[in-house]
Nucleic acid binder design. Structure first.
Length: 198
DNA sequence: GAGTAGATCGGCT
DNA sequence: GCCGATCTACTCG
């Protein structure tokens, strides 16, 4: 299966892309272990005018600088000192948009994911949630600012999700963003088991 | 099953 | 020095 080209990520419509990413395969090859899962849940963040985004109001710091890169690289950051949250940088250069990948449905290398998560059985808790998903795929802070044309992380086409099977709701954990906390920029696949929260 | 405290550290003020 | 785009374990019922 072919990698999705970097040009795909350079679309400035981050809200559209967040929906379009559903059903795509997120693949990592880390520590010589190939793991992959279908993207089942995403959230869009728009730097220009979205108070929930780290790059809100085009704020630039050492951390957020990577979000201004041309689309098609990773943005990984540490949350609560424990969790590595994986984002995809979107848009043209100097456009500070990103998409948080919140959950995947495991497809390949499930035994590696179970081992990384210290589990024995495949169930919802393996990879439905931004922190656990990164752990299952082996993503760490060292995978920040990596190109999504490999060799460690890339996306592939897998299946199309019908429009009526895409649910959009408000994002999670962004109450601090005032009115922007109400934007319906979280998307997930209807009736999929691997969703962080209903 | 629901509710909550504790973990743990880089980035910002 | 404070706090977060979270997860888990533990309590209480």
């Amino acid at each position: 299966m072919a990698q999705i080209p970097l040009s795909y990520y350079q679309n400035d419509d981050v809200v559209f892309l967040a929906q379009d990413l559903l059903g795509k395969l997120l693949v990592t090859q880390i520590d010589n272990k190939l793991t992959a899962g279908i993207i089942t849940e995403t959230e869009a963040y728009r730097g220009l005018d979205d108070k929930a985004a780290h790059s809100y109001n085009n704020k630039r710091t050492a951390r957020t600088e990577i979000i201004y890169a041309r689309g098609g690289v990773s943005y990984v950051y540490l949350c609560y000192g424990i969790h590595k949250l994986f984002n995809i940088v979107i848009g043209a250069e100097n456009v500070a948009n990103a998409i948080l990948i919140r959950a995947i449905e495991p497809i390949k290398g499930i035994e590696h994911m179970l081992e990384r998560r210290n589990k024995t059985k495949l169930n919802k808790s393996l990879s439905s949630g931004p922190g656990t998903m990164s752990q299952a795929l082996g993503i760490t802070m060292g995978h920040n600012a990596q190109s999504l044309n490999g060799p460690n992380i890339w996306l592939e086409h897998f299946k199309e999700i019908a429009k009526e099977d895409v649910i959009s709701t408000i994002r999670i954990g962004v109450d601090y963003a005032n009115e922007d906390a109400l934007l319906p920029w979280r998307f997930y696949i209807k009736n999929n088991l691997f969703i962080s929260k209903k």
